[in-house]
Amino acid sequence: MILDLDAFIEKERPFWDELRALLKRQGDQPNRRMSIDEAQRFQYLYQRASSDLVKIKTFAGDVEIKNYLENLVARAYSQLHEESDRIARFSPLRWFFSTFPQTFRRHWKAFAVSFGTFLVGAGFGAGMLVNDYELKADFIPGQFGHLSGKPSERVEKEERHEFDYFQSRQTFSASLMANNIRVSYMAMVMGITYGVGTVILLFFNGTMIGAIAFDYIADGQIVFLLGWLLPHGSIELPAIFIGGQAGVVLGRAMFGWGTDLRLRQRLKLIRPDLLTLVAGASLMMVWAGIVESFLSQYHRPQLYSWKILLGSIELIALIMFLYLGGRKKWRKGRDK
């Protein structure tokens, strides 16, 4: 019991001041690492302040000191229990070449769901057009007006059209990147609806691509289609699937299948992975945006084979990257 509060404060205040000074120093330099001695001292001071707070709360009704100590203890608590996020050095290269593909592989089933949903959507889109070609206008949004006509007519027009490298290419590229990055993280974010939003988004994108692909193939324009879509699509579509993969991971965490963890804990566990997948997909979208703007729209028949080859190489490289990136064996071989 504290009989003499003044004496108590006088005795304890140096410890509080020391803790406050340590907190201030850590706040000013968040990346600074404490030495073992400092950390031990910090923990001691935190425990001492905690115990003082309990005493004050139990035996004295002093609001100011209680608030002051609560504030001190809350700050020390968060400092002491923080996971080494700020301290650990982030290496962008290691993240991209190791963490990203590792994360992708860890959630490969979610990727399969994402890709599968898209394929079902594509099949649906194509199937509906087989059934009733008049539905084409319903599957291809108004913003893609150039796709509304007959594919062979567009191909003929595009092949005659002089490609201008400079006319609005950069603007086109920037809007593609912004739009596609938005789509990929939208696919992730919609996972909060227990995955329903993600599935709808992937299915919808699938129906659109399926309808377009069917339209061109049925009109005998498969080479044009591949030359047009492969250079950027080989990166852009997988990026959307990866965004969807993150959405499926989030949706699964919302349901909590196969785990006893509570929702908060489940979300906490997947958070870094969600971010890694979305950030990786966004970087892929930047590349896809550049290719789509500066190469994909360049329609010259003599270039089709090169464009298809480039698109195929990109796709194979992407698959290898996602399959091998960050694997121990492969990394060892590379280090040698």
Binding site: A74, Y77, S78, H81, E82, D85, R86
Partner: peptide
């Protein structure tokens, strides 16, 4: 939500 330091993610 547990009163700890916010992480970038």
């Amino acid at each position: 939500e547990r009163g700890m330091t916010l992480k970038l993610n």
